[in-house]
Write a protein that binds this DNA or RNA. Structure first.
Lengths: 339, 339
DNA sequence: GCGCTTTAGTAACGCGCGTTAGTACGATGT
DNA sequence: ACATCGTACTAACGCGCGTTACTAAAGCGC
């Protein structure tokens, strides 16, 4: 706490200590290959930096150089761990690009979110990533137009902003296909309950896979449910207790619903995967890995989307055009023991 | 993307547009009550700011004012949602204090963590919060000494840095007490498996509560387990299948273990809470709220710890001394239906 | 000994802003 | 009529740095 009032070491201090001009120190710091500094001087300056504990002032540097070298990430920080993976992917990629990534939670309320944009822009972020926890359309505050922005796991309502989203159709197809490959022919689908992209896309993929396998679509096998364990439980009950032949496999709209489905199945004395196969969606580690047996599921590629978002941001800030405004990324299958 | 190369609006632009000097604009922006600016001028300047879309440059401002008005938060971003609550608490509190909070993930590797400190210090953060996902001792990179730092959910190995941690003893006491109040006398304790503060403290609280109730400590009722659902399952089996009278209640070291314990209990045809009561720890929403029946558990007050950490940081940066180096905060009981 | 090139630097400006010291001007008191 | 005082500003400096333009000295060929 003693270091509080002490004036911090500046480049001039380093220059004086090394017996050179401030310009020379700057050249060494920025490793400018032109205007050649001899090795001996370089080392002397580096030694002075070390000895004095000099630390460049990023604000002053950004001011003079007119670029800040960092991106901002605004994300909904909710209990779901999704945001976490986006952060990982984005931060690692930014780091590899020599950029820094600063994060802000944006889900408190609308005003706070706008304030987050303002703050990040005041800090002169070179670009912004905006990530949501569930795939949907968003509208950003007007401030977002002042700097390159890439949307992650969401898309602009009026299609102007570039985005990277999961390929829901392919994901639904992958899950269904996996069950088909295991020999199942009557596959129940506990879908998410509204017209959100995940529900629409996954159902489309589900039907497509069935059709490719030469099967008819049986609408009574598709039951919407609330996106919770209880919702999954109720929907699973409905499918398991139906008249006629019940499904031999359940494709659940997310892992929480699969968790409920497990309960319904176990209650009826059925075993997973022997009597009924279950496949989930989201690959929510806390659930999927700890359910017994482990839940085979389709992962949302949050980490990859985060990384890809940074890539796109890099291209945008460099002034390069993007080949596609909306990039769809695949959802990989995670095998455990429920199929 | 067109706004990329355009020079940004500066205070001078605003001054020119409003027909005043830059100083006057600065006074208005900083709402300096002395050197009175008449209402009319103030409004004119505000109008110019609006019209030109002026946005202050935080870097330049920090440079001139010698303070940045923001804190940094370095946290392990792991799949567990704990960090998320710390972020919420810290961000809201910082916001209320007129400070901004920028977050960085620090758990990739040691080098990246040190780099995160460096970067935040280069940006001239006024103070740093360092948060972990599980309560333990940490050692920070030396750079951490350059600025006030508060540890959240962890503590400095050599006790020099201020910290805010959960009161594990009180938490263990609370959980045990709840079961005692429900009439249980034989309470099994599935503890975390190593000498970490959580395991040590909670056991201490458990024993203390039993003693206060006039009960003897039966060491055979305390079973350590791996901190997973499988670990909880195994430990629960051991307790349920033991010789002699089995416990009527289980206190689980965390919610994941409780999840496993549920399975063990259900397998034996026992019902929760009628035949066996279960209480968890952590209040991990994804598990506790979605288990059936809902898991009564003790919450780790992450959000509150985050807020408290910011408070301490505020005091430190203001040069005020702290009353305690280590602050312990209570772990509240979350009632659901498993007791 | 002279001009030319390379080496090894440096002086000085400006980035956008906060702040201090000072000024012009009208109103007030006597 | 003049000194005094508040009002409403402004000029100018410096924060720490990147960068451009320039220079002094050394090396080299003839």
């Amino acid at each position: 706490m003693a270091t509080n009032k002490a004036r911090r070491v500046t480049m001039s201090d380093v220059a004086r200590h090394a017996g050179v001009s401030r310009t020379t120190v700057s050249f060494v710091l920025n490793e400018r290959a032109d205007a050649g500094i001899p090795e001996e001087t370089r080392l002397r300056i580096r030694a002075s930096i070390e000895e004095l504990g000099y630390r460049p002032n990023a604000g002053a540097r950004a001011l003079a150089a007119k670029r800040s070298e960092w991106y901002g990430l605004i994300t909904e920080i909710v209990t779901a761990p999704f945001a976490v993976d986006v952060i990982k992917g984005a931060q690692d990629r930014a780091w590899a690009d020599g950029k820094f990534l600063l994060i802000t939670a944006g889900d408190r309320d609308r005003a706070m979110e706008a304030a987050a944009f303002d703050k990040l822009l005041e800090q002169r972020a070179e670009g912004l990533l905006y990530a949501t926890t569930w795939h949907r359309a968003v509208t950003l505050p007007p401030a977002a137009r002042e700097v390159p922005v890439v949307l992650v796991n969401c898309f602009d309502a009026d299609g102007a902003l570039p985005s990277v989203v999961p390929d829901e159709v392919a994901g639904g197809h992958t899950a269904t296909r996996r069950l088909l490959d295991a020999g199942h022919r009557r596959i129940g689908f506990i879908n998410l309950d509204t017209g959100i992209p995940a529900a629409v896309g996954r159902r489309q993929g589900y039907e497509q896979a069935l059709r490719e396998a030469g099967l008819d679509i049986d609408d009574s096998l598709v039951v919407p449910g609330h996106a919770t364990a209880d919702g999954g439980y109720a929907a699973a009950c409905e499918l398991l207790d139906r008249e006629g032949d019940r499904p031999t496999a359940l494709f659940c709209g997310n892992d929480r619903m699969a968790m409920g489905a497990y309960d319904a199945i176990k209650e009826r004395g059925l075993r997973i995967p022997d009597d009924i196969a279950v496949i989930g969606f989201d690959n929510q580690e806390l659930i999927a890995a700890y359910l017994r047996p482990g839940l085979t599921t389709v992962a949302l590629p949050f980490e990859f989307m985060g990384a890809k978002g940074v890539d796109m941001l890099g291209a945008l800030t460099a002034g390069q055009p993007l080949d596609t405004t909306q990039m769809k990324v695949d959802c990989p299958l995670i095998e455990r023991s429920s199929v």
